[in-house]
Simulated assay, not measured.
Amino acid sequence: MRITISGPPGSGTTSLAKYLVARHGYALISAGEVFRTLAAEHEMDLASFGTLAEKDDSVDRMIDSRQKEIGEARDDIIIEGRLAGHMIDNADIRIWIMASVECRSIRISDREGLDAQTAAELTIEREECEAGRYLNYYGIDIGDLNIYDLVINSEVWGIEETGAIVDAAIAGIR
């Protein structure tokens, strides 16, 4: 089983991925974690590293290529990242997690120790930067959700309910 989980920052993709790993014992590869690790290694915040990625496409291409290679080669894996649904050609289930900017900004501010307004501004800036890069590099309109099998609003359901929805989808495929 190959499951992709995508969504904007703070939507809950990582929480859902961790839930599924714990529940089903799948492996996990997360583009966001790779991106955050690279940003820290360059001693940059996410917005600044995003700007670097905007100027140097090798950053995104390396992350995306590695995620695609691992995701398509393994079974029983969760591939979590904004482009995962587009990159993993042999995915069994493609999931998009959504929530409002307001909701996501609060989650991000709690996670990153920022005030909600700063988190909202940085989130919007990051999303615009990423959307431009995805369109420029791959011709992907990140706002087009037609490729996804499930679109779930994490503002409506908590992680247990969201996980149960995905568990039902997994059971339906098996």
Score class of each variant (00 low, 15 high):
residue 2 R to W: 03
residue 6 S to Y: 06
residue 11 S to I: 04
residue 14 T to P: 09
residue 18 K to E: 11
residue 20 L to W: 05
residue 21 V to L: 02
residue 24 H to W: 07
residue 25 G to D: 10
residue 29 I to D: 08
residue 32 G to Q: 09
residue 35 F to S: 00
residue 37 T to V: 08
residue 37 T to S: 06
residue 41 E to R: 02
residue 42 H to Q: 09
residue 44 M to D: 00
residue 46 L to Q: 02
residue 46 L to H: 07
residue 47 A to D: 00
residue 50 G to L: 03
residue 52 L to G: 01
residue 59 V to W: 00
residue 60 D to Q: 10
residue 61 R to N: 15
residue 62 M to F: 04
residue 63 I to V: 15
residue 63 I to T: 11
residue 68 K to P: 14
residue 69 E to F: 09
residue 70 I to R: 08
residue 72 E to A: 11
residue 73 A to K: 10
residue 74 R to P: 06
residue 77 I to G: 14
residue 81 G to M: 11
residue 86 H to C: 07
residue 89 D to T: 14
residue 91 A to R: 03
residue 91 A to D: 09
residue 100 S to G: 08
residue 102 E to H: 10
residue 103 C to H: 04
residue 103 C to Q: 05
residue 106 I to V: 14
residue 107 R to L: 08
residue 108 I to P: 13
residue 110 D to H: 11
residue 112 E to S: 15
residue 113 G to L: 14
residue 114 L to Q: 14
residue 115 D to F: 04
residue 115 D to C: 00
residue 115 D to Y: 08
residue 116 A to Q: 13
residue 116 A to G: 07
residue 118 T to K: 03
residue 120 A to L: 12
residue 120 A to M: 14
residue 123 T to G: 11
residue 127 E to L: 08
residue 131 A to W: 02
residue 132 G to I: 02
residue 133 R to C: 04
residue 137 Y to E: 04
residue 138 Y to W: 13
residue 143 G to S: 12
residue 144 D to N: 15
residue 146 N to P: 12
residue 149 D to R: 07
residue 151 V to Y: 00
residue 154 S to I: 01
residue 154 S to N: 13
residue 155 E to L: 09
residue 155 E to K: 07
residue 156 V to N: 15
residue 164 A to N: 09
residue 172 G to W: 02
residue 173 I to E: 12
